[in-house]
Amino acid sequence: MIRHTSAQRPRSRNHEITCQHITALILDYVTGELDPQTALAFKAHLRLCPDCIAFLSTYQKTVHAAQSLRYESIPLQMRRRVRQFLRKRIKGSPPTR
């Protein structure tokens, strides 16, 4: 959470958002949840700040990379072992097939 000290309090709207604020707001920005005024200020900052453009790009790339992870389905042998375990534990007897 970003706290403003009196020294940091902006004098005008154009200086309202710092790179630190941008970083804190990125999640809501990429999901479109920023209120219109904050979204405008966010975009205005990006127009002037190559550091934040780069940061936003790497943030989005990170999320995309995580979303691209692939996982195998349950191995057949594991499925059989779990089924047998459950039968033994719950019914106390092995499966008939």
Binding site: C19, Q20, T23, D51, T58
Partner: peptide, 22 residues
């Protein structure tokens, strides 16, 4: 985690866009 200077700028500048390098 990212760090910032007292004025709110990124601590290490410029911030590189390494996204395509992945």
């Amino acid at each position: 985690l990212p760090r910032f200077q007292d004025d709110g700028h990124h601590e290490v500048r410029p911030v590189f866009n390494w996204g395509n390098e992945l």
